[in-house]
């Protein structure tokens, strides 16, 4: 097991470097094709070459390779890796420390993800198990239909309707009922409030989680159905074990394997939802930061943030692998 983890870790570092290189190349080409971000610094003003050159120097864009389409700009990339190794993540295009940006934005996104994850697992395990247990019943069909509807409904519509139609009256109602200093008004605050991060991220997180839960419900249902037909369940039943014991120990436990895998994979995908949720609910998080950085061709910010995200994703994948082994006795690592 120890050797396995070590090998996975080494592999992970390789993947990480590849991802960084890929992103570095993409952003570099973006700068080369799209023109210099230093120009955008001046907006509508017409800047002289000297002014542009000075701004390029200020933001480390002065390497001539950024002007040559097709040049992979490996020099700046290697230089950046060296800085990363020393713990220096550089600054964004406006001189703000990338580490500072991440330190502000990441906790908000992590809070969002926590709530999303809890929502997924809760809805997925409960509804999925119910649907599988009473397969073919009205409840099963109802759950399947609901999950499909959730899937088909774009998440941004859900959030817009919540923010503009539901949140304001709910907030007013909560303030009248519970008083302005209680928690409920914060739950329904139309935008994020950095002074009360958990309370104001709760509802957006649940909504985002709700939107992604359909796949989970289906997954849990499918894998539990499979388990119900498995030999080990039949054996357990024939041993005369109580049905509840069979369900909890043999069906639910076994079916949690694919669920855990899916959590790992969906982590990266959830970032897409985060861009939208953060934008609409005014949460300063990684999704919004990345979105802005990509739009502005902010190489150092894109790379800094993505490196961090990719690192987290890779770690999550490894953790998932290990959880896998712990949950499923059939899986062994050489």
């Amino acid at each position: 097991m120890g050797r396995y983890i070590l090998r996975r870790a080494v592999q992970a570092v390789g993947t990480l470097l590849l991802v960084m290189l890929l992103l570095h190349l993409l952003t570099t080409v973006a700068i080369q094709l799209n023109g210099n971000p230093a120009q955008a610094f001046f907006g509508d003003k017409v800047a002289t070459p000297a002014q542009i050159a000075a701004v390029e120097e200020r933001f480390d864009l002065d390497d001539p390779c950024y002007d040559q389409v097709g040049n992979p700009c490996l020099g700046p990339f290697v230089e950046r890796l060296g800085q990363y190794a020393q713990g220096d993540f550089g600054t964004n295009l406006r001189g703000r420390e990338v580490a500072d940006i991440v330190a502000t934005a990441a906790p908000n996104t992590l809070r969002l993800f926590c709530i999303v994850l809890v929502t997924w697992l809760a809805l997925g395990m409960v509804l999925g198990s119910v649907a599988a247990r009473w397969r073919g019943s009205a409840g099963d069909h109802g759950i399947r239909l609901t999950s499909v509807l959730i899937d088909a409904f774009p998440v941004f519509v859900l959030l817009i309707v919540y923010r503009y139609v539901v949140a304001v009256p709910l907030h007013g109602w909560a303030e009248d009922t519970f008083g302005a200093d209680s928690w409920p008004p914060y739950w329904f605050k139309p935008s994020f409030d950095p002074d009360h991060p958990w309370a104001t991220v709760l509802v957006p997180g649940i909504l985002l989680g709700l939107a992604g839960s359909a796949a989970f419900i289906r997954l849990v249902r499918a894998s539990q159905l499979e388990s119900y037909q498995g030999d080990h369940v039949r054996t357990a039943r024939s041993k005369g074990l109580v049905e509840r014991h069979v369900v909890v120990h043999h069906v639910v436990r076994n079916s949690s394997v694919p669920v855990v895998t899916a959590v790992g994979l969906t982590f990266a995908e959830a970032l897409g939802g985060a861009v939208i949720t953060e934008g609409l609910m005014n949460i300063y998080g990684m999704g919004g930061v990345l979105w802005g950085a990509v739009r502005d061709d902010d190489v150092s910010l894109v790379l800094g943030v993505v490196t961090l995200l990719a690192a987290v994703t890779v770690v999550v994948m490894i953790v998932v692998d290990i959880a896998y082994a712990l949950l499923d006795p059939r899986i062994r690592y050489e």
Binding site: V29, L33, N34, A268, R295
Partner: peptide, 25 residues
């Protein structure tokens, strides 16, 4: 397998952003 891993690690939306803004012009 490595390719699958690399592409899975980069979130679709981020990649979409990058590539689409790259060729926007």
């Amino acid at each position: 397998s490595r390719a699958v891993e690399v592409f899975l690690v980069v979130p679709l939306l981020l990649a979409a952003l990058l590539v689409l803004s790259l060729f926007k012009g």
